[in-house]
């Protein structure tokens, strides 16, 4: 309680230096006047009376300093003094100051750049359920970048059959970027869309839920089954003005009719504006 009261008093004193200093000086002057008066009464000469009063007082400057230390926030005072000195020095030596500022700017900039990359790639979790339990399987066949680390459908099915370590094994068609699979016609201007063909358990494994409609049924995932597509959320908003009635309608993609079975939640899994689609695994054509 007393400590809190004292802290508050110190803080108040920190902002009222000038009046408190005046008060202190008046008080110390009156102290010396009392002392001189007493010395004179003891029969000392005026000169000696003044000298002895000062000796007994013991250093006016030190006493003032001690008074200020007990009264205010000496650490903060020192800090402000140091800052003032720093800025004075920097102003005097502008060349050095600008180089220092430049180096700091470069350092901070480089840090931010590296951090934003690391944050995106390493730190931020994947936007799926239990992202720490997801594993991406890739073979080590070396040359050719990502195109060389795919598996055949047969290998994928082997993985599924012999899987014991994972809750589930799923897959997607990795060659979706340049495929002409998703040319949309019959809805205004024809346009190229990006989509990806996924296995039946792909979206459930990642814990993805549709915002509208449903995910794919087993029937839609069999070879030669009914063609079905799920739309990305922002594509749905842009192209169909977020019309929920789109579910159940047909879209013509590459001259084949697909039924829209649902719309994915926002944010979408990968590239926004990609209609997710599935027409079952086409067994050949899974090689690069």
């Amino acid at each position: 309680m007393d400590a809190l009261r004292q802290a508050l008093a110190r803080l108040r004193a920190f902002f009222r230096k000038a009046p408190l200093d005046r008060d202190m000086e008046a008080e110390m002057a009156s102290h010396l006047a009392f002392a001189i008066e007493e010395n004179l009464q003891r029969g000392l000469s005026p000169q000696e009376a003044g000298r002895q009063a000062l000796v007994r007082f013991g250093g006016v400057a030190q006493s003032k300093e001690k008074h200020r230390e007990a009264r205010g926030l000496p650490a903060l005072d020192v800090l402000i003094q140091d800052l003032r000195y720093t800025f004075r020095t920097l102003r005097r030596d502008r060349g050095f100051a600008s180089v220092a500022v430049l180096i700091l700017a470069l350092g901070i900039g480089a840090n931010i750049a590296v951090f934003s990359v690391v944050n995106t790639i390493l730190l931020r979790p994947l936007p799926f359920r239990d992202p720490q339990r997801l594993v991406w399987m890739a073979s080590e066949r070396g040359v050719g970048g990502l195109s060389a680390v795919t598996y055949t459908v047969a290998a994928y099915e082997e993985f599924q059959r012999h899987n014991r370590s994972f809750q589930d094994v799923t897959g997607y068609d990795p060659f979706f970027g340049d495929s002409d699979f998703t040319k949309l016609t019959g809805r205004g201007e024809p346009q190229e869309l990006s989509g990806v063909r996924v296995a039946e358990n792909f979206l459930p494994t990642l814990g993805v839920q549709p915002a509208l409609g449903r995910l794919f049924t087993p029937e839609e995932c069999r070879k030669g089954g009914r063609l079905a597509v799920l739309l990305g959320h922002s594509f749905w908003q842009r192209q169909f003005a977020a019309d929920p009635a789109i579910v159940g309608q047909a879209l013509v993609l590459n001259n084949r009719p697909f039924t829209v079975v649902g719309v994915l939640r926002h944010p979408s899994i990968s590239a926004p504006s990609s209609p997710w689609s599935e027409d079952g695994y086409r067994r050949p054509g899974y090689h690069g």
Binding site: E27, M28, F57, G58, G59, V60, Q62, K66
Partner: peptide, 8 residues
């Protein structure tokens, strides 16, 4: 030192 009394 009488001056120290003021800090106190």
């Amino acid at each position: 030192n009488q001056g120290t009394i003021y800090a106190s």
